[in-house]
């Protein structure tokens, strides 16, 4: 391990510490804003460090550099503008939209990386399945809160049957990827099944329960990012992903408890009404 690699690793460790400390500070009203700033500072350092890694390695070619640079610049501008202009009441659906694109990015990592080792194949399939499900599920959740998708519980005809079918497709594609080196086509098949499942799972849930669902999907994205970390063998992704996955799960339970809603019943759907009262409470 070169001195440069060691320094990079230590900086990533410091960033992971900033995420944990930041999240901890966000538990109390007095320190919450500072917590978010600590976490943001860690993120900025992690991104700058990765830029240094790319430049130092010299492995990235010019086209990839342009795709990465232009893509991130456009995404950052879109995110900043949306976050700046959004009304306070519309914030939960914007968070859900940001969660959707995060899950989408995690899924695309495994689709772009074409996992080769068994470890990367297993975690790659999990990454694609969880990430794609969160992407479409969060988009529907965001649409429900924004009123673009009807907030009332929508019961899909033969929904259970279709869910079982999609689960079978997911398992078959997973076996193809891991056991038979199915590669990219099987991974895209898994992505398609998970995208459909995300829509199907979110549609029957009433608008009032959406904050809890968004929190759950947020935890899912964290897990997908951790899986992407396994595929890329990147420690910061594994740490931050696991952290958000677990913290998001606890937070989901706290939110459901605060609303007196059993999580199981929320997920099963067809429960409650399309009211948006919970947006303020959540």
């Amino acid at each position: 391990m070169s001195a440069f690699d060691t320094i990079v690793h230590l900086i990533y460790l410091a960033c992971a510490t900033a995420f944990v400390v930041g999240l901890h500070l966000m538990n109390a009203p007095a320190t919450a804003r500072r917590g978010n700033q600590v976490s943001a500072a860690g993120m900025g350092v992690a991104i700058l460090t990765t830029v240094a890694v790319l430049i130092d390695g010299g492995r990235i070619n010019a086209y990839a550099a342009w795709a990465l640079g232009l893509g991130s610049a456009a995404g950052a501008v879109a995110g900043l503008v949306a976050a700046r202009v959004v009304r306070m009441t519309a914030m939960p659906q914007l968070v859900s939209l940001f969660n959707a694109v995060g899950g989408g990015a995690a899924a695309l990592i495994a689709l772009g990386e074409h996992p080769a080792t068994t470890q990367a194949e297993v975690t790659g399939v999990l990454d694609v399945l969880i990430g794609a499900l969160t992407f479409s599920g969060s988009l529907i959740a965001s649409g429900k809160l924004a009123g673009r998708v009807p907030g009332r519980p929508i019961i899909v005809p033969y929904g259970r049957l279709i869910s079982i079918g999609l689960a079978v497709v997911a398992v078959v594609t997973a076996v193809l990827v891991v056991g038979f080196d199915g590669g990219a086509p099987a991974l895209w098949g898994a992505a398609a099944a998970a995208l459909a499942a995300g829509v199907l799972l979110t549609l029957p849930i009433g608008g009032a329960d959406m904050p809890v669902v968004i929190s759950l999907l947020n935890a899912c994205t964290g897990t997908a990012v951790a899986m992407a970390g396994f595929v890329l063998e990147s420690t910061p992704l594994i740490i931050a992903g696991a952290l958000v996955g677990a913290a998001g799960a606890i937070l989901t339970k706290l939110m459901a408890d605060a609303m007196n809603r059993p999580i199981g019943a929320i997920i099963a759907g067809g429960y409650g009404t399309g009211d948006a009262i919970a947006v303020a409470a959540g």
Binding site: F19, G22, L23, M26, N27, P29, A32, G35, N36, S39, A40, M43, A46, I47, T50, V51, V53, L54, R59, I60, N61, A64, A65, A67, L68, S72, M91, P92, V95, F98, N99, G102, A105, A106, L108, I109, G112, E113, P211, I214, S215, N218, T221, G222, V225, A228, G229, L232, S234, P236, L237, A240, G241, V244, G248, L251, L254, M255, A258, G282
Partner: peptide
């Protein structure tokens, strides 16, 4: 603080950008 905390956790999994940058080195 539930919603801000959810939003803060959501921002932290934005670390996926680091993953996308690492992916960029393998694409051709």
């Amino acid at each position: 603080l539930h919603t801000p905390l959810m939003s803060g956790a959501n921002a932290i999994h934005g670390v996926v950008l680091v993953g996308v940058m690492l992916l960029a080195a393998t694409i051709s």
